[in-house]
Simulated scan of single mutants.
Amino acid sequence: MADPRKTEQMTSGAGFIAALDQSGGSTPKALRLYGVEESEYSSEDEMFDLIHAMRTRIVTSPAFNGDRVVAAILFEQTMDREIEGKPSAAFLWEDKNVVPFLKIDKGLEAEADGVRMMKPIPGLDATLERAAKLGIFGTKERSVIDAASPSGIKAIVDQQFDLGNQVLAHGLIPIIEPEVTISIADKAEAEEILLAELTRRADALPEGTQVMLKLTLPEQANLYKPLVDHPAIMRVVALSGGYSRDEANARLAQNTGVIASFSRALTEGLSAGQSDAEFNATLDSTIDGIYNASVAG
């Protein structure tokens, strides 16, 4: 059973979701953008220590709290680590009033029929049980749409909702993320198909059941407004998807009721070499911009 205080924050809280869930494959790039080169670590353990230090610096900053950041998505290793002597999820909720989510997907299959489906997730039920005990509120699972393929998009949405039902069975709220690649020529057409498929599955959810959606910012502003207003959708959030932070914020502000769930756009401009004062000021400015775009609608 979801914590009612966390549910209230995720349903109506003003602010955005910080995506702090870079996994093994994306960690080297995230560290490089943060000013840490691959030559500065010699093992995977050292790499994960460095990314945890970066995440810790972000979430312990005075700029990072529930006044503007309603939730944060964690990588499994982050969930299993501590921040200032507390399990990461407990620190976020108890010290920062930020609702913790967990990234559960294990990467993508090769492209087929215009989409990249999620790979199998071994031991998922055990992971979800552990997450619930640690105070995790929900999960996030990503797949990718690379073409306006009706059959491919139907398959990807069905896989997402079937996995979402498994998450719901553990009392957790899934964030369903079928990302549309921003560079494809038929992006607008893909988004129309995606809207229809998401609506189909949302309509079929049992009464009282809710999921969240994490979607690429659409070509047509407010395309996903029917999903924002759908009783089975707790919240619609947007990924930055490769847009610059300024463009992502501008697009986000045009979509009423949609809030941000940015990763790279959140950490843009942060550097390991910054003093604490510089780091905190940069993060504060970034959070302010994303917050304002999230509440603009």
Rank of each mutant, 00 (worst) to 15 (best):
A253V: 07
L217H: 06
I153W: 09
K96P: 08
R245H: 03
D45M: 14
K119E: 15
T56R: 09
A296V: 10
G15N: 13
G114S: 11
D186A: 02
T56K: 09
L92D: 03
A89W: 05
S149M: 03
G242K: 10
D284N: 08
T127Q: 14
A204S: 12
G273F: 08
N222G: 09
A272N: 14
P87G: 09
A110D: 15
P87E: 10
V59I: 15
L198I: 06
T267L: 12
V167K: 01
A190H: 10
T216K: 11
D162I: 14
D45Y: 03
S42W: 12
M1N: 15
Q160L: 13
E247Y: 09
I121N: 04
V237E: 06
P218R: 10
D284G: 14
D288P: 04
E38Y: 00
E191P: 07
A131S: 04
L215T: 09
E38I: 05
D284C: 01
Y291K: 07
M118V: 10
E189T: 14
R5F: 13
M117H: 13
M1E: 15
N97Q: 15
V236Y: 06
Y224E: 06
F75M: 05
I259S: 00
I145Q: 02
T7N: 12
T209D: 02
D95M: 03
K6S: 07
K214L: 06
L205M: 11
S143C: 13
K133C: 04
A265F: 07
L223W: 05
A112N: 13
